[in-house]
Amino acid sequence: MKRRGTIVMLAVIVILTIAGIWYIVVKDMEDPVTYETETAEMQTIVKETVATGSIVPKEEVNIKPNISGVIEKIHVQAGDYVDAGDLIADIKVVPNVSSLTSAKNSIAAQRTAVQTAKLALDNQTAIYNRQKELFDKGVISANDFDLAQNNFNNAQQRYRQEQVSLSGASQNYDIIRTGTTAGLGEYANTNVRATVSGMILDVPVKEGNQVIESNNFNEGTSIALLADINKMIFEGKVDESEVGKIKEGLPLEITVGAYDNRKFNATLDYIAPKGVAENGAIQFAIKGTLEPSENNSFIRAGLSANASIILDKATDVLAIKEALVQYDPETKKPFVEVETGDQQFERRDVVLGLSNGIFVEVKEGLSKTDKIKVWNALKAPAATGNYGG
């Protein structure tokens, strides 16, 4: 029994020895681990966040009529430039029957008042003439004559007032019936004119459409949308996770896809104080004024755009890839490994600056000639054997 146990132990020892020798031989046959290196380079690092939105005019003016009626003629179309005061459309008045009847009755009543005032004036004129003749002969006193003259003057004034009221009633009737009257052609309500200079963005009505005047009880019908296209802004939204990183005055870089991703400069000048829930997230509205384009490019209103909000920027600084940086497990300070010989490296502490998530600025610790270890080891590809027949 003892002899059998000894043989088993010797067999186990021999097997383990052979396995150990085989493992060492295999490991010696494997290719050694090699490390690639990279060098630092000059970069412009921009830290930014992106907002989606559109390009819209800074100020849009909605042209509405001051009188209800039917569009008789439109003098402009979308894309036209107009100056303040230019004619946009003519309106044919469709009078209100009740208002028209009331105006007619007012004219009739006023004509009666004029006739009554004329009769009173004729009567006072006759009295005045008789009293003057008697006064000249010394038959009546000066007080009696003054009373007659005063009544005559009052009758004249009354007659003139009634004539003016009749003229006003006639003008009011004309305005209700046609929208204008004699002597007021320049200010006719039937002429819809531009209130500011700019481009016509839209004409939502056609000739023959009925329109409603703008008043305290009705917004009125929009006849034209007018804006100065040289003053455009970006309107967009940012997520609540980003709104704390931005502030008014930051530069924006607007990218418009419709123009081959051409970029326009802008300045952030508004951040909404209150967010709005959209698709389960809180969004904050922002606005940025576009700077005038150097080549005066025409930017169409309503185009979709993306705004890169530049949070920080470092121009022409020494930078390396973030993936090259390692951190001390105890001090958490950054360092890199710099090549000192063939596949020989030493630790080099560095001071980092601005990062965009891919590249990071190196303020101290490296030069452009230093070769930095790519610390994720890369094995050489295994040799392919030749198998003959």
Rank of each mutant, 00 (worst) to 15 (best):
residue 155 A to G: 04
residue 167 S to N: 03
residue 170 S to G: 09
residue 146 D to S: 08
residue 166 L to V: 07
residue 143 N to Q: 10
residue 153 N to S: 12
residue 145 F to A: 01
residue 152 F to M: 03
residue 145 F to G: 08
residue 172 N to Q: 15
residue 144 D to L: 02
residue 157 Q to W: 09
residue 171 Q to E: 10
residue 155 A to L: 07
residue 151 N to Y: 01
residue 155 A to I: 06
residue 160 R to V: 06
residue 148 A to Q: 00
residue 148 A to W: 00
residue 144 D to N: 06
residue 165 S to H: 07
residue 144 D to T: 03
residue 167 S to C: 04
residue 155 A to F: 01
residue 171 Q to G: 11
residue 162 E to M: 09
residue 170 S to D: 12
residue 152 F to R: 01
residue 160 R to K: 10
residue 150 N to T: 14
residue 169 A to D: 08
residue 158 R to I: 05
residue 157 Q to I: 15
residue 156 Q to Y: 15
residue 152 F to H: 06
residue 152 F to C: 02
residue 154 N to S: 09
residue 171 Q to N: 11
residue 156 Q to H: 05
residue 160 R to L: 03
residue 165 S to A: 15
residue 167 S to K: 08
residue 142 A to E: 13
residue 153 N to Y: 14
residue 163 Q to M: 13
residue 143 N to M: 14
residue 156 Q to R: 06
residue 169 A to Y: 03
residue 148 A to N: 02
residue 146 D to F: 13
residue 163 Q to A: 11
residue 151 N to V: 00
residue 158 R to M: 11
residue 144 D to A: 03
residue 164 V to T: 14
residue 162 E to R: 12
residue 159 Y to K: 00
residue 147 L to S: 10
residue 170 S to C: 02
residue 160 R to Q: 12
residue 147 L to V: 06
residue 156 Q to P: 01
residue 161 Q to I: 14
residue 169 A to T: 05
residue 150 N to M: 07
residue 163 Q to N: 08
residue 157 Q to T: 12
residue 172 N to R: 09
residue 145 F to I: 04
residue 167 S to T: 13
residue 158 R to W: 01
residue 167 S to H: 07
residue 156 Q to E: 08
residue 151 N to W: 00
residue 170 S to H: 05
residue 154 N to E: 15
residue 146 D to L: 04
residue 160 R to I: 12
residue 157 Q to V: 09
residue 149 Q to S: 05
residue 146 D to T: 08
residue 167 S to A: 07
residue 155 A to R: 02
residue 168 G to D: 13
residue 148 A to R: 01
residue 150 N to A: 14
residue 146 D to E: 07
residue 166 L to A: 10
residue 153 N to D: 09
residue 146 D to I: 02
residue 169 A to H: 07
residue 166 L to C: 04
